[in-house]
Amino acid sequence: MNIKKIMHVENLTHFYGNQIGCKGINFDLYKGEILGIVGESGSGKSTLLKCLSGEISPSAGKINISLDQGGVKDFLSLPEQEKRQLMRSMWGIVHQNPRDGLNLRISAGGNIAERLLNVSEKNYSHLRNTGKYWMEKTEMDSDRIDEFPIGFSGGMQQRLQISKILSSNPQIVFMDEPTGGLDVSVQAKILDTIKSIVRDINVTMIIVTHDLAVVRFLTDKLLVMKDGIVVETGLTDRVLDDPQHSYTQLLTSSILQV
């Protein structure tokens, strides 16, 4: 079977002035894969994700992307317009704080509709049905489609943000600690939802977390980061069960004690 490579990253490096953000990152991402990025606070996870999703321009390195239509492209030299268009439909970011990804002055349905309208969907009933469909898929009550997310709990807002992103059937989804700001009990439920959906729709995803339980539960492949560099990478089960790098060993032993 020939699985399509959709992202190729080479020597990706970002400095904030003299401060290392991330350095010399290499990996390939294949269609349908879920890649986890783990590491302690300040290890460069968010920096890497922001470089990959176009939020910041890295200091050095290469990102080749392969889109469903259009062949292989040099992501970093795409014009701003194309990058924005990618993020608005074919790619999607689920922010840790749902307020960064939602428009709180627009109804739940309107938030989902906005994403679909970016791909010039101009049929009201279809927007509405798709909105309801995705709300149900993320285990929300679709009767609340006309309510404003400002009145939703943090967990509900996060579910809505996920609905919105997935509604356009994106090729790659980026998530940075999607449950980080939520109560532990809510976290588990949302992770359950994410897991069931990603298996269902076979989405390709890069997810940042420092929770190894999430990693085990959700990801196929893992990058372990420390001080801005990748210290270990491999299939998730292999990395967790047979860690090679001393830092990964420390990381995995600390979770076992819990």
Binding site: E80, Q81, S107, G110, A113, E114, R115, L117, Y124, D146
Partner: peptide, 22 residues
């Protein structure tokens, strides 16, 4: 200005969507 330059007009239709919904 960017929204015009890049023809990103989804928000405009969202406004209409909201009125129809409400």
């Amino acid at each position: 200005r960017k929204l015009h330059a890049y023809k990103e007009y989804a928000l405009m239709h969202v406004k209409l969507y909201e009125e129809i919904s409400q």
